[in-house]
Amino acid sequence: MGYHTFEADRADKLEDAQQRYRFLSAEELRWALSADSGETVADLGSGTGFYTDEVAPDVDRVYAVDVQEAMHDYYREKGVPDNVDLVTSAVDDLPLDTGSLDAAFSTMTYHEFASEGALTEVARVLKPRGTFAIADWAATGSGRDGPPVDERFSAAEATEALRQHGFTVEFEAVRPETFLVVVSAE
């Protein structure tokens, strides 16, 4: 089950590129997604749109999904690219059509929404063989950065949950504080 969301009144912290890229670079995210220019993707837990902005130039459409309207307000003030649609929704109840996404990604938010319902929804909205890339704080980390360790999942826990929802694990890497998992839908 997921845990609390990042506090919207601390949104400025999510725009610290030096800090964010320490744990996931834009290049690594683009590699994990392998998205093409005509594709539609979703950023699940988009927050201020930091990583949405990195992906948007490479694809046709991005749905920036966040449960907090305050995060979308921040993103609007910052400036939302023309090909990004803001969607205020929990991941377990996505207002997207079945099979409408070529890919989805979650950057440091999987621990916030991980649940049976959320993984079922991601599987529903992805096209067959669609990519789901997850970079998140690892339960094996120190807890110095990110959420408390007891609110995190291990890469093994995440991949097992994803397999149970019909995903095929394509890539898995565990780092000192984070993990990166790339899976494909059935």
Rank of each mutant, 00 (worst) to 15 (best):
G130L: 03
G49K: 01
A133S: 06
L24N: 00
T52Y: 05
E177D: 09
E39K: 02
D16T: 07
M71A: 00
S154T: 15
H4T: 10
V67C: 07
G166Y: 00
D136P: 08
I134N: 00
A133D: 01
F23P: 03
L96P: 06
D66G: 04
A135Y: 14
A138Q: 09
A161E: 13
V122M: 06
S154V: 07
L44K: 02
V174P: 01
A104S: 07
D85T: 15
A156K: 14
F179A: 04
F50T: 05
R20F: 04
V41Y: 02
K127F: 04
W31C: 09
D102V: 07
E15T: 09
G166D: 05
K13N: 12
N83G: 01
A118S: 15
D53Q: 13
A133Y: 03
A56V: 08
A70W: 01
S25A: 05
V91Q: 03
H165F: 03
E77K: 13
F113P: 04
E39N: 06
G146I: 12
V125L: 05
G38P: 07
G45V: 02
E69V: 10
L162K: 02
R10T: 11
E186H: 13
Q18F: 12
F132H: 00
Y63T: 02
S106H: 03
Q19M: 13
P148R: 10
R61C: 07
P81S: 02
M71F: 09
V67K: 13
V182I: 14
E157L: 08
